[in-house]
Design a protein around this nucleic acid. Sequence first.
DNA 1: CCTATTTATCTTACATGTAAGATATTTACA
DNA 2: TGTAAATATCTTACATGTAAGATAAATAGG
Lengths: 169, 169
Amino acid sequence: MTATALDDDATAPAGSDDLLSLRLWLQLMKCGKTVEAAAGGQLHREHRQSLARFDVLSQLHRLGGGWQTVGDVADAVMASSGNITSLLDRMAADGLVRRRANPADRRSHQIAMTDAGRALFGRMAGGHARWIGDALDGVSERDKKRLIELLVKVRRSVENAASPEPSGS
Amino acid sequence: MTATALDDDATAPAGSDDLLSLRLWLQLMKCGKTVEAAAGGQLHREHRQSLARFDVLSQLHRLGGGWQTVGDVADAVMASSGNITSLLDRMAADGLVRRRANPADRRSHQIAMTDAGRALFGRMAGGHARWIGDALDGVSERDKKRLIELLVKVRRSVENAASPEPSGS
DNA sequence: CCTATTTATCTTACATGTAAGATATTTACA
DNA sequence: TGTAAATATCTTACATGTAAGATAAATAGG
């Protein structure tokens, strides 16, 4: 008996490389879900905030906390335009961020943290980094460095397969 | 300028190991999101189905496609009880799965694929494995094997930190 | 047998995500 | 200039996720 749900499917085509890729994909999804659930649970228990909100505050914290466009924030946290709108609406309703019209482009809106948002992020960030350090305590420094490199390779491969560069760019 | 949003936070505490862990966490989240969005997009384009539905069908396909309890399916796809209920409701409304009372335990319900669900899964599985193989084509076989091992290590570390085993089990 | 606890699922409320398309504005160009 | 295309955000509809607690049935202990 194997660890995957797909490895014996009659319509499966190619060689053993597809099977290895499938196993990698399954482990990546499983690991990602596990880490995300654990980290999200920690943020919810300690601060009643979601990972998505923490990501937005982290991005707004970068570059000194100045105004950033909605699109820049959406790209940074990998949220769709429809999604970031409602997320920022709720965060603004909770007094964590505020909007203003972009003075340079009237199509565009900008976002920044409020004082309350900055204070909340200050309380969250240190504890979150410490929690992650504890959670990854069972992984050696060498393995962490190798993993970071390999994860970047995977991401590049997937992004490249999704929209391959024309050969002469 | 660095790659993270947190590395210069004044409240951050410990040594360089927390920073390395933070970088690993960021890459893991980013890689997971990228791969999930790409795979989900492929399933939506080709079959108008979500990754969550594909996961459920994969799990039901295991063990020969017989009846499984709602709880077993929920555990396998890492869904909460409230979540799996509505997901299975929609899949049942689309004629992909069906429910029955568990003859051995009247608290429990069981789930199996319908013929339509089995047919849909057959069409999805091969193409999905092939798509994943293409997407991970830029990663060497050796790197894939190392990554699988390392991801399992990470997951074990996080699970262990979340609920550490008592010393003598 | 009776009651308390545990277990399995469902219900409700709400947060977060995608998809598709509307709106307003800017940009490119004939 | 005028018009088409691109861009940035928002709106709407709906799918998927969590949290908290209700419900029903099984189980444990008296």
